[in-house]
Nucleic acid binder design. Sequence first.
DNA 1: TAAATAGTGTCTTTAAGACAATATGCC
DNA 2: GGCATATTGTCTTAAAGACACTATTTA
Lengths: 223, 223
Amino acid sequence: MGDVICTVDVVLLTLRTAALHVLLHRREREPFQNVLALPGGYVHPHTDRDTRDAALRVLQDKLGIQSPYLEQLATFSGPARDPRGWSVSVAYYALVPENLIGNGKDCSGTTALCPVDDLRGLPFDHAQIVETAVHRVRNKSSYSSLPMHLCQAPFTLPQLQTVYEAVLGEPLNKVSFRRKMDELAVLEAIPGAFSSGNAHRPAQLYQLKPAWRHALSVTERGI
Amino acid sequence: MGDVICTVDVVLLTLRTAALHVLLHRREREPFQNVLALPGGYVHPHTDRDTRDAALRVLQDKLGIQSPYLEQLATFSGPARDPRGWSVSVAYYALVPENLIGNGKDCSGTTALCPVDDLRGLPFDHAQIVETAVHRVRNKSSYSSLPMHLCQAPFTLPQLQTVYEAVLGEPLNKVSFRRKMDELAVLEAIPGAFSSGNAHRPAQLYQLKPAWRHALSVTERGI
DNA sequence: TAAATAGTGTCTTTAAGACAATATGCC
DNA sequence: GGCATATTGTCTTAAAGACACTATTTA
């Protein structure tokens, strides 16, 4: 009964040039040594408090990324998804602003940021896991504050609207968008802080209220 | 690495007297022998194609229930949730109409149907799993055809509305409800079939279109 | 025909979207 | 001042809810 391989995989998503990208990591060992794949690894029952802990450890050890927005996605299982044998992978997805990537390790070709709509050659069932994650993120973004975790604070409302539009893939009504952001009630204006340097009116800068740094607010009827 | 216990648990929900109930099963073995708990068991890598398959097997073997609406809920893990050791449980939830329960085995005290808002003494972290399932079902019911799987076909629209109201815990506008059922587009009227036996106008009988027996339809703005 | 519930028409209220006017920085 | 974008006001449109009217059965 104990011959089930138990792993975690992390789909780390970010926004680059208005398109969702996933961070892939070059595998150090067999199977699929040197192939780009989702960062993941065995659950370490002696040190991990749970699978979420294992996912955070993977992010820290393999990518040097700490404390992103992290949520359980789904669990994938079966005899064929991993050549080592019958396996269970608890998948998580993380959202980070682009600037957070590369601050840690790498810079050496061990990671790559790939557009989620143009992925090829992923090992295991990682293509399906990424697809599930992207679907979840796009869906959840349509009624919640989720995309705010892709935005580097401080940010302006027009910048945030651009992020929402990139994730959702459709233009949004400016007035409605602002009404919705107000309804979500997770942003706080930074007093006296405005965007600058542009040849036009500066915009108010905002940040997530601290209580919402790792939580979501949802609207009744969608963004 | 292989010393992680891998199990599935199933939260089987039904509606009895307008209240959500969960089907519990008396454990045949240690730990918690003879205690009522969620039906569950080890993943069998030699026979299960995946964890969903394991959940269906558990439903069949322990409860004699086949082919309900079944969906993955979440995965629960950690060193303390199971006294046997560090464990991962992939939880599923199933929805069935009440009449389907008891057609199989039991009738002998090995199972019990308990109201989800009045559960005590559940072993493991099963209380948390049930709570998560109920939360998921209530939330998903607010914008989808999910509650239809709690309804024995054929059913009338007023009956279905009662089911939605029971799950959501609030009264619904009759006209809006019918507009939404029309928008979901998953029901088909059974030609010439009407409810009868009551001292009032009979109601048209409906059933799920076959394509939607194991799928969900969702609305843009909620029920 | 009275009672009870099913089913529908329509008015009111509320939310969403379109449009435009004003605000404010930098050149 | 002129330009570009931010922000806000307000009108239009669409969805949701309230209410009431008609329909159809049994007692």
